[in-house]
């Protein structure tokens, strides 16, 4: 009697097992959608975002531009109107709303260049950095203080006071030279240049005419 019932139940064993597996597979549908959780974890993002490592100083950027460092890719995240008015030399314009466009991705999702975001201060550039960091893009930096700091330190550097350390004067000399590179003209440098130009005597280079060589051989 027992054997008959058991045999009857065992008849449906494969069906039951198949149903069980299908139900478990259905559980995959309940798993959270990947799209929303794309990128590094929130804890990682917070720890990266709080660290000041992403910032590059205006002096560092000026140094790289002056030396025509080919590894740097400057990205202005302001709107095109502000970009056209003034931007850093050779900077690209990717306005913040277009940050995730396919065209922008080619510049951001790579590891050959050091990308530096900048805006007027670093509020908008930080936003761009946070989104890029969540997506796991490498070598992304932010210009500390943005163009406002660029103006204060590079374009119009303030002269250190007399009681300041020697490296402050050295830094000022570099910044002043950099500001001249970026187009700022100092009256004293113009006077110096003109006086220097007068002093230098013209070099006279005499060019000796080559004598025509007589043809050799022949009859």
């Amino acid at each position: 009697m027992i054997n008959r019932n058991l045999v009857k139940a065992l008849r449906y064993r494969y069906v039951l097992l198949a149903v069980g597996l299908i139900l478990l597979a259905g559980g995959l549908v309940l798993l959270p959608k990947q799209e929303k959780h794309k990128g590094i974890t929130s804890a990682e993002l917070l720890s990266n975002a709080i660290s000041p490592e992403r910032y590059m100083s205006t002096d560092e950027i000026a140094h790289k531009i002056v030396n025509q460092d080919p590894s740097i890719l400057l990205i202005d995240v302001r709107d095109s109107l502000n970009y056209q008015k003034y931007s850093l030399p050779n900077a690209l314009n990717i306005p913040l709303p277009k940050l995730l466009d396919d065209n922008s991705m080619t510049f951001l999702n790579q590891d050959q260049y050091e990308v530096v975001f900048f805006s007027n201060d670093n509020f908008d550039a930080d936003k761009a950095w946070i989104i890029s960091n969540r997506l796991g893009f490498k070598n992304i930096h932010v210009l500390k203080g943005g163009l406002n700091s660029w103006f204060k330190t590079i374009i119009n550097p303030t002269m250190p006071e007399e009681n300041m350390p020697a490296n402050a004067f050295e830094q000022y000399r570099f910044r002043k030279a950099a500001s001249m590179y970026f187009g700022v003209v100092y009256p004293e440098s113009v006077i110096q240049q003109s006086t220097e130009q007068k002093k230098v005597p013209k070099k006279v280079i005499t060019v000796k005419k080559k004598k025509k060589s007589t043809p050799e051989g022949g009859c």
């Binding site: 799209e35 974890t41 936003k127």
Partner: peptide
């Protein structure tokens, strides 16, 4: 996992804008 994101990067960017 704890502290999951609830929005995509695209939505996050829109919110930050």
């Amino acid at each position: 996992p704890k502290n999951l994101y609830t929005i995509t990067t695209k939505t996050a960017l829109e919110m930050l804008l």
